[in-house]
Design a protein around this nucleic acid. Structure first.
Lengths: 152, 152
DNA sequence: GGAATTTCTTGAATCGATCAAGTCTCCACG
DNA sequence: CGTGGAGACTTGATCGATTCAAGAAATTCC
């Protein structure tokens, strides 16, 4: 029964004109289960899933998939690159300054009203990237605990 | 006559409670003349200005100045970190996908109307970062030339 | 099922940035 | 003006993330 999972990795690869290999399928599956993971995290998840694959192969697959538009690569300042399945666009990211966790944030105001520069300095603008920085609940709790201990 | 240049480096350092050293002054002057430069570019500029300083010292100064809020550090995906004097806030950046050149872009819609996430997933949002990606005039011209040559 | 192409493995190398220890500079005090 | 101590700078090594290169294995088309 196809379509049981998020999306059929094989179909995705075929649609992108790419060979269907164990590594790429594993990368897509892992990313479907753990979105916004780094290459190393994916490598770990893939290994845990019982698929033997080197870290370099993960990098290679991610690079190819990104180049073919199957994945999107995000590179928050101060942490390794993270990847996500290119599902519906039009969302942005919220990054934790503590643990670098990334979550999706829907674009509030529908499309791109205020998301074009006033003066583009002659540039032809192709893309707008919106990133929110904050503290995730876990890190906030941890910080509170640390403060209490420090005060005690 | 103070204030002749963009801003007096010495005053900036004193205001931040930092020692006034040759290296820091040189870094500030270089940044004033070449905003959005990387550490290595600044190192080159400083050396060209006749101030002997190692690259590591540049990194160190930039780090300290950033931590003390004198500078802002921006890290566009795919290029080295860049720095700018923290003048009036409320502007964003436009990065060239070809040469990684960075230019300032004023925040159009005044403050932050659409710049808060709809659902923060429990995060306490501290900052919003808006980056535009495009092709600068130079790179566009170069691309056009290359295409012509390819076609000829 | 077999051959050609592409991918994956193994190992090294790169780039940007940081760390560590010793020396020197800046600045306050005498 | 001279000296002492904290902090900054130099030198050299190290690190993390990522990429490159060459040979071995897998995938696809026929």
């Amino acid at each position: 029964m196809p379509g049981s999972d998020v999306l059929d990795p094989t179909a995705l690869l075929r649609a992108a004109g790419l060979k269907v290999t164990r590594g790429r399928v594993a990368a897509l599956v892992a990313l479907g289960e753990h979105s916004h993971s780094s290459a190393e995290q994916l490598h770990t998840h893939i290994a845990a899933g019982g698929v033997p694959m080197t870290l370099q192969a993960v990098y290679l697959s991610l690079q190819v998939l990104t180049e073919h538009g199957v994945l999107r690569r995000i590179e928050p300042a101060g942490s390794a690159a993270r990847y996500e399945l290119r599902v519906g666009d039009n969302h942005h990211h919220l990054v934790c300054t503590g643990c670098s966790r990334v979550v999706d944030v829907d674009c509030m105001v529908g499309e791109a009203p205020c998301l074009l520069p006033a003066d583009a300095h002659g540039f032809s603008v192709q893309e707008t990237e919106l990133t929110f920085w904050g503290v995730c609940p876990d890190c906030a709790a941890q910080a509170a605990t640390t403060r209490e201990e420090g005060a005690a």
